[in-house]
């Protein structure tokens, strides 16, 4: 395990008041670095800014963007905006959950995939929409997402294999 104690080096400005960086933007920076908000770093942030830890926890859990648990290696983000809903994203989500054995908002046991939902990505013309590792897939159906995840699985396995073989 990485020692995260005291690592607030991601912040380039002091946090406080209207002249410094707000707690929220500090937390954005922390999450960008670690892909989530590690407890140790939040404790340090609390101490540094003289803010009660509960207040930091409150912010971290109030805003959807923040996560207190590590994300999977590959992120499946499904859009649950109205247009996507009307065009059937729910069937797609159920299929992803069934395939990977995870509910939206959680990560597979092997840490490979995390399934997240987002209120609207603003690309409603492509509804229903799923984003895998930053790549957009529009007009999704249960059978299409199945094929895409399978293909993605094979691709990532292959790269994992070639990594291990080159390591030999």
């Amino acid at each position: 395990m990485q020692d995260l104690k005291g690592d607030l080096s991601v912040l380039d400005k002091p946090v406080a008041g209207n002249n410094g960086v707000s707690l929220i933007s500090a937390m954005h920076d922390i999450q960008e670095k670690y892909s989530y908000l590690p407890e140790e770093v939040l404790r340090e942030l609390a101490a540094e800014t003289d803010t009660p830890l509960i207040e930091i926890y409150r912010i971290a859990t109030f805003y959807k963007h923040f996560s207190l648990t590590p994300k999977g290696k590959h992120r499946i983000v499904s859009c649950t905006g109205t247009a996507c809903h009307v065009r059937g994203i729910e069937v797609v989500n159920t299929e992803v959950s069934r395939l990977l054995g995870v509910e939206p908002g959680s990560t597979t046991a092997d840490g490979k995939y995390s399934l997240e939902t987002v209120n609207c990505l603003g690309a409603c013309a492509l509804a229903p929409l799923v984003v895998i590792d930053g790549e957009y897939y529009g007009n999704m159906t249960a059978s299409r997402i199945r094929k895409i995840i399978r293909k993605h699985d094979k691709k990532t396995e292959k790269t994992a294999c070639s990594c291990s073989s080159s390591a030999k």
Partner: peptide, 12 residues
């Protein structure tokens, strides 16, 4: 902070 799902005018 265009939060309405199904709306993307402000983004565009």
């Amino acid at each position: 902070d265009e939060g309405d799902p199904g709306a993307f005018m402000d983004r565009s």
